[in-house]
Design a protein around this nucleic acid. Structure first.
Length: 429
RNA sequence: GGAGGCGUCGCCUAGUCUGGUCUAUGGCGCCCGCCUGCUAAGCGGGUUUGGGGCUACAACCCCAUCGAGGGUUCAAAUCCCUCCGCCUCCGCCA
């Protein structure tokens, strides 16, 4: 939820932000008029309610020793008023709901620095490393599925048999690879001062709504039948709701958490996209960084999160680029988003491996997370960033570090997590 | 799943049977001040959150807030209903 005061005092800024995302701005006027009628309704209700309370006291006083006629008169008067109070209250609630609905429909205001436009209008901020030149090395790179089959690491056939398309088994060295990556990510996070968390991956609607995943993104979310619960698509959801309805001590900020959880996604809008292998799947595990900090510190923290993501990818010796996502591709909650895209040899392009968003106070307002400082209470800022999404990381490692015979070189930083192994060798032809 | 108990302004707590003087009691903690070689003790005051009015986003006034929502009533922390959460016991279980 954006700051209602900004909407009221500077609606043109909100209109401009809508335009930058390529969205209509009629919701701004709807919110403004809803706010006006809401406040009018409040004044009305409060006046009537105040009068009711005043009369109620007189009745109580007349109860002892007052004359009975006077009490009867008061009762008649206040009885009629009670009906009006009830009506005024209903009107107030209705107006407040309308206002709330309009406000919830407005996405976070995109940063001035974020490029305008949609998915393809991103800006490349930097490129780290360079894609391997397999032509010069004299062999055709295999894709991760083929490599995974040769290593006995990835089994998508049985994944499909047991669970359907976009499911997989990690087997043998594949399973070990996941554990190694998770441990490496968690160790890095802990050394950077993060608190490790294993959150629940099923949540109530409020958590989903608060993080902004029940709007237009709802199609991608699994809802449990007859349970009014959801499977999370990212641990950003439980981690944002972790401190919901709390007032944090300003001195305790920033609070940095590294959460490991499974992620479930319907991938509703991506029929036929990335169908081969485990690049786009319905379920995967992920280590996610989540930070609560002050709005003033949010931008600097966003850069730090990006730095930690880059550190992890650097340690895996991957070639990647950092992009500044365009306003139209930000998602509801983010003010600005950076993606790290690793070079995927079999696809001949950079693909998203990690993503970090600065959600400013947007989620905190919805989830009612504030901090208490010198000048009272104020919403905090929340930020999130992928440290390691397992399948895509495995894809990038296998394809990037493969050799002509189908073996895969283990990046130095990962070796300690695989019992010192320097090479993964094919077990099948 | 069955039975019972409980949920009060940071923490603990009074109030709920018997609806109105509850503008929610007291303690702890915290903040400000006084006193005081220092510290402690003592004394005085303050201390939920959200919203609205008016405005300098101050002060002030008002409304809501006793787990959440609904109901009864002129009036609800208090009575009734539904839901949520916690605790105890039983059953089941990784």
């Amino acid at each position: 939820m954006i700051d209602p005061r900004v909407l009221r005092d500077d609606p043109d800024r909100v209109r401009a932000a809508q335009a930058k995302r390529g969205l209509a701005d009629d919701v701004v006027d709807r919110a403004l008029s809803a706010d006006e009628s809401r406040r009018k309704a409040i004044v009305e209700f409060e006046a009537k309610r105040g009068e009711q309370k005043r009369l109620g006291k007189l009745i109580a006083a007349s109860g002892k020793g007052g004359d009975a006629d006077e009490k009867q008169a008061l009762l008649a008067q206040t009885k009629a008023l009670a009906v009006e109070v009830k009506a005024a209250e209903a009107a107030q609630n209705e107006a407040a709901e309308e206002w709330q609905a309009a406000l919830l429909a407005i996405p976070n205001l995109a940063a001035d620095e974020a490029p305008a436009g949609g998915e393809d209008n991103f800006a490349v901020l930097e490129t780290i490393g360079s894609p391997r030149d397999f032509a010069t090395e004299g062999f055709e790179p295999r894709d991760h599925l083929e490599l995974g089959r040769m290593l006995g690491a990835i089994d998508v056939e049985r994944g499909a048999k047991v669970s359907g398309s976009r499911f997989y088994f990690l087997v043998g060295i594949g399973a070990q690879l996941e554990r190694a990556l998770v441990n490496m990510a968690m160790d890095q996070a802990r050394e950077a001062g993060f608190t490790e968390v294993i959150p629940p991956s099923m949540v109530k609607p409020h958590a989903m709504e608060g993080t902004g995943f029940l709007g237009q993104a709802a199609d991608d979310v699994y809802r449990l039948e007859g349970q009014d619960m959801y499977l999370v698509g990212t641990s950003e959801v439980p981690m944002a709701a972790f401190h919901s309805d709390e007032i944090l001590d300003a001195g305790s900020l920033p609070l940095r958490y590294a959460a490991f959880s499974p992620c479930f996604r319907k991938e509703a809008g991506s029929h036929g996209k990335d169908t081969r292998g485990i690049f786009r799947v319905h379920w995967f595990d992920k280590v996610e960084m989540f930070v609560y900090t002050t709005p003033e510190e949010a931008e600097a923290e966003h850069q730090r999160l990006l730095g930690w993501e880059k550190q992890f990818l650097d340690n895996l010796e991957l070639a990647y680029q950092v992009i500044d996502t365009a306003a139209g591709d930000l998602g509801l909650s983010a003010k600005r988003k950076f993606d790290c895209e690793a070079w995927i040899p079999s696809q001949g392009k950079y693909r998203e491996l990690t993503s970090t968003s600065n959600c400013t106070e947007f989620q905190a307002r919805r989830l009612d997370i504030r901090s208490r400082g010198e000048s009272g209470t104020a919403p905090v800022a929340t930020l999130n960033g992928t440290l390691c999404a397992i399948p895509r990381t495995i894809v990038a490692i296998l394809e990037t570090h493969q050799q002509a015979d189908g073996s895969v070189r283990v990046p130095k930083a990962l070796q300690p997590y695989l019992g010192g192994r320097e090479l993964l060798e094919p077990t099948v032809g």
